[in-house]
Structures are given as C-alpha cells and as structure tokens.
C-alpha cells in the first residue's frame, strides 16, 4: 500500500494556474547542488548567479531565487561571497560526506570548518553502518554532537534511504533522528530537516521513501507541534517529479509545509527543467535546453 499511495500522487493532474504556481514554488525550494571533485571556484560562482536569478528571460511575475546553494565545505567562502546580499542561503555538506565513514572527531571538525566559513545550513550524513548494526544510540549521539557544533545553523540529516533499504528501516531512522535532534532542546520550525539521500547512489529520493519521511514528520508535528523540514535529494531531474513531490507534501503534511522553510528539493539539473517549463507556460513553446542551462 505504501507504493500504491506514493504512486497515487503522481496521478494528480497539475495544469494551468496550479502548474505555474507549483513550478515557481518548486524553484523557490531548490537546493541547487554541486558535489563533484572537479568543482572549481568559477563553476560555483556561475551556479550562484543562477541560484539568485534562475531564469535568463524576465518573466512576469519574476521567477524566484532558489532556496540555497549546496556545496562542499572548501567552497563555502566563495559561495558566501557570491551570494552576498541575496536571499539564497549557503548550505554545506559535512561530516565526512557522502559515506560518513570518518571518525566522529574528524566529522565534527569538518562541520566546524563549514560553520566557520559561513555556512547557514549543514547537510550531515549519519553512520548508516551503525544504524544497520542496530547501534541506534550511536546514531542519535552523532546527530546531537553535530547539532551542537551547528549552533544557529540549520541542520539537515541525510539518512541515505537507498542504503537503509526497507520502509521499516527508513521510518525508524527518521523517527530516531527527529527524536535525537529534539530531545534536549526546543527545536524551532524548520531548524532541523530530514533528507533522503546524498545523491551519490541509487535509488535515492523515490516517492515511497519521501512519503515515509513526510509521515514521520507529520506524526512528530501531531505529537509535539514542531515542524521538522523534509528534503528529498537525488535523482529528481524533471519538473513533473518536483510537482509530484509538492502534491505529496500537500496531501500528507499539508499546506504549511509548502514553503522553502520546511521543504527543499536537492538537485542539480532539476532547475533547468523547471525554468524550461515556466518558459513554456508563458511562451507556449519549449525552450531548448541550451537556452536555459547557463552553468
């Protein structure tokens, strides 16, 4: 029934005004990401320009900026500078991304470095090995330790749902992380996110895995009144997939979550298709890929 329910969201028909509004909303939720070994300062600066104004052609109303640019810690200073004065936030992966296999000390140092360089948000990975071996306290402890280092920076916890494999594991892990992050402190709405994947493996943000996170977040809200954010990432390339995600958010946790403060989509190429579809809604014909992709 999980797969059936997740598939039902893809059957919603999003047309006309709801499509236009949905595409713009999706743009505003994108964590524009590049996590390659070959990332250069120049490339990242170009990405930042695109993050601030995603559409080269002016549209009315204007296409919003994306939510954040997500990079490795080393590039945080460059991104910080390039995004200065904009609403776009600086997100850095940390804690030994993507495998999380480094010793905890090094992972905390990694986080510390990103924070000191000016990251607004930290995307951490958990020790999937510890979770799969049943050492749940270890996972909870590391989430709290990273949270400590983060201070005011927002924390997104990557579960890597593809490695957790089963729905039971994914749901249990989400509950564990949310509980660990909010056990000893008053968490503000949107201060903590659960995120599906690193984007470095497949399967990543499948509809069922995102649904499980949303359900966990919904149940936490019903119990505590605190809104945890959700970020699907990995393999979301098409505007249609982004709209399906918005439908799922709307029908699972409700309208409140339809804001970049509580829902993000981690992606690199998705923005191109979103812009292309937005151009289509205004022009009535499709823009070529080379018209929209400027990075």
């Amino acid at each position: 029934m999980l797969a059936q329910r997740a598939a039902s969201f893809t059957k919603r028909s999003i047309k006309a005004e709801s499509k236009r509004a949905g595409l713009r909303l999706a743009v505003s939720m994108v964590d524009l990401t590049t996590l390659e070994g070959a990332d250069s300062p120049e490339l990242v600066r170009a990405l930042c320009r695109r993050a601030i104004s995603p559409c080269p052609t002016p549209l009315d109303p204007p296409v919003p900026s994306v939510a954040a640019v997500c990079i490795y810690p080393r590039l945080v200073p460059i991104v910080r500078e390039a995004l200065a004065g904009s609403s776009v936030r600086v997100a850095s992966v940390a804690t030994g991304f993507p495998s999380g296999q480094a010793p905890l000390e090094m992972r905390l140092q990694d986080t510390q470095a990103a924070i000191e360089a000016g990251a607004d948000e930290i995307d951490m990975v958990i020790s999937r090995g510890a979770f799969l071996a049943g050492r749940f306290d270890e996972v909870a402890d590391e989430v709290r330790a990273v949270q400590e280092v983060c201070g005011d920076a927002h924390l997104k916890v990557i579960l890597e749902t593809g490695e957790l494999e089963t729905p039971d594991n994914i749901r249990r892990c989400a509950d564990l992380v949310i509980d660990a992050a909010s056990r000893d402190r008053a968490v503000q709405d949107g201060e903590v996110f659960v995120k599906t994947s690193t984007g470095k493996m497949s399967p990543a943000a499948t509809m069922p895995s995102v649904l499980l996170l949303l359900e966990s977040v919904r149940d936490h809200f019903n119990a505590t009144g605190v809104r945890i954010g959700v970020k699907p990432a990995g393999g979301i390339r098409r505007a249609k997939a982004a709209l399906h995600l918005l439908v799922m958010v709307r029908e699972t946790v409700g309208q409140d979550w339809l804001t970049p403060d509580l829902f993000r989509i981690g992606a690199s190429s998705l923005l191109d298709d979103l812009v292309r579809q937005l151009l289509w809604t205004s022009r009535g014909c499709y823009a070529a890929m080379h018209d929209v992709a400027v990075t």
Binding site: S18, A21, G22, R24, L25, S28, P61, P62, P64, S65, S87, L246, R250, Q255, L258, T259, P260
Partner: peptide, 13 residues
C-alpha cells in the same frame, strides 16, 4: 521569500 511565493503561501496551492 519573494512576493510570488508569499502569495502562494497565503492562498494555498
């Protein structure tokens, strides 16, 4: 949030 987004947030999607 831009104006357009707050419009979405206010009216609901």
């Amino acid at each position: 949030m831009t104006q357009a987004d707050s419009a979405v947030a206010a009216a609901g999607w």
